[in-house]
Design a protein around this nucleic acid. Structure first.
Lengths: 333, 333
DNA sequence: AGAGTTATGGCGACCATTTACGACGTTTCA
DNA sequence: TGAAACGTCGTAAATGGTCGCCATAACTCT
């Protein structure tokens, strides 16, 4: 493999000049530039990445830590992150945190130890304090799907509380008064925020929140299954169910269909996330749009601008929006 | 940041000895070992990854190239790859090929150029010859979901032809004779193989393959939607549909449900892949199990064993299996 | 005591970048 | 004409862990 030294020999210039040609931040005459370029082409020269990283202390890599890789949620986000960074020749190193504090911290250490220039974190279990301290370290971080006031400029998130509010408000507008709720795990920030929104919507309409009509699911299909069985077993009446994500809605609906119920005629459902499948399951899900892929893109662009100093414009913030499809229906009187 | 030199000074030994302690492949007396370890702890010494990579010409990273990151298919595979490699302190760099030959080759170059020690490739557009040549290069590769005879030891794949056969055979056993087929893109290997299996099943049962009952979809939900509309418009009679993946089944079924049809009473469906959602959509999908996550794990373990020389046992091969659920039903006479 | 084994040190190669410094040569302007 | 300014390019050192090779020691076993 040809080295920069070989190139300098062939071109008849010094090492420094070859480097100057490659990192076009210094003045080099056009004539020497061409000589060097020709020598590089002739030798099929490719800079040694390891030596570049050592000397410049920059690996051109970004670590991305997500809670999980399976499931419908993170794929679109990863896709956007990869595309945006790849376009600027940065590579993406992935790690999975499994929504566990120890694993999340271990993953952060792992990524930093591997020389990532910056991190994109979607973490749920780790404390605010940890992240604030981390943000003061040498490796820049961006938080996705989480808001911490002290480092708000590094937070790219959706107002989950508002989303939860919109979901329940939609049902209230359709005349529903007895609304059950299948929550995500209470140790996850977004799950709590969504539930808060639900409770605020109830309160603003003068309705009491009934803890017995609230079930803590696991954000997976089984969570919806379990939640639905719990709600039926509770004996409490309800005409609509809000689920904290679409996967749990699909599990919940599958239970109802197995019991021979007609959805949404007998029971209305509202989900959250608007995963790609939401429009293909039956009935088509009414849900809250969660532009997770755009958030991924925004995180990547933020890093390109603020860490890699690219001259890129970063988009503005977004809001949750209701997507009304078929799974929620006007309450029959 | 402390360097290996600082450690050697504090411990009163040479650089070489410190290195020997870290890379426990040489004889070091227990006494010096403890001295060095103590010095490292005292200085909170962390080896510089970049220097390690430069000197050892090994980055402890594996490049993973997949066709896409969104969709339900690759998430589980990535999750297993990440978990298996992470357990051995290897990191995963991702790239997306978009089923396009130029992009795939570019991505391979990108990953190799970044110093990956090995590659896991799920590529569809690139030619066999390219991959054979690549396999002879300095960077080891493993192929997922593709079989090339000349490098069969590096291929981790499922017999797609057999899977296609099993799907159609299941319907034949249920009495169906007029079976439509919604294929994946014909430029993808696995799509062709699955279709081959379908045709073999028909042939073995003395049935002719009718090209008019075959539609080339795009492996996404819309492909199923388009396929279903095409089939209905064709005017040809059919009692069952095989789709080359589950996403297209869900699209196809959604068209039928919109038309007020009863599934599976009026039309049977068999899918392929057994994606997580398959059991939560209504009706629950009868499909071919595609253990893509296990294949990911196997690819990772193969690399750990053959490239990183870990003493790990790699699992054996797998076969496609039919998962009979609700979307296919005995033909009423 | 001599032979064999184990432990350790020294050294150079690996290789692109950055910085400081200086040496030219050319241009510009007083 | 002389000096200052500027563009261009070279030199040299530091960055930092690994690995192989060779040279010493310091043991252990007959």
């Amino acid at each position: 493999m040809a080295t920069i030294y070989d190139v300098s020999q062939l071109a008849g210039v010094s090492l420094a000049t070859v480097s100057r040609v490659m990192n076009k931040n210094a003045n080099v005459s056009e004539k020497t530039r061409q000589k060097v370029l020709a020598a590089m082409a002739q030798l099929d020269y490719k800079p040694n990445t390891f030596a570049q990283s050592l000397a410049s202390n920059c690996s051109n890599s970004v670590g991305v830590l997500v809670s999980q890789l399976d499931g419908p949620y993170y794929g679109p986000m990863m896709a956007e992150i990869e595309a945006s960074l790849r376009a600027e020749n940065k590579h993406v190193i992935i790690a999975v945190g499994h929504s566990n504090a120890a694993t999340e911290m271990d993953s952060v250490e792992f990524l930093i130890g591997r020389g990532c220039d910056a991190l994109i974190l979607d973490v749920e279990a780790v404390s605010d304090e940890y992240l604030i301290e981390l943000s003061q370290g040498p490796t820049p971080i961006v938080l996705i799907n989480r808001y911490i006031a002290q480092i708000s400029d590094r937070c790219i998130y959706l107002n989950n509380e508002l989303g939860g509010y919109l979901a329940t408000e939609h049902l209230l507008k359709l005349g529903h008064q007895e609304i059950a709720y299948i929550s995500g795990p209470k140790n996850k920030h977004d799950a709590c925020e969504r539930l808060d929104g639900h409770m605020r919507a109830l309160a603003e309409h003068g309705l009491a929140f009934d803890p017995q009509l609230c079930f803590e699911g696991n954000y997976k299909e089984e969570g919806g299954v379990d939640g639905m069985r719990y709600l039926f077993a509770s004996g409490k009446p309800f005409t609509a169910v809000v689920c904290a994500n679409d996967q749990m809605v699909s599990g919940a609906i599958s239970v109802c269909l197995e019991l021979g119920m007609k959805i949404p005629e007998q029971l209305s459902f509202v989900g959250y996330d608007n995963i790609p499948f939401a429009r293909y399951i039956s009935p088509k899900l009414t849900t809250i749009n969660n532009p997770i892929h755009e958030m991924g893109k925004m995180a990547a662009l933020w890093l390109l601008k603020n860490v890699f100093k690219n001259d890129i414009e970063v988009m503005s913030v977004f809001s949750p929006e209701l997507v009304a499809r078929e799974s929620a229906k006007q309450l029959a009187r």
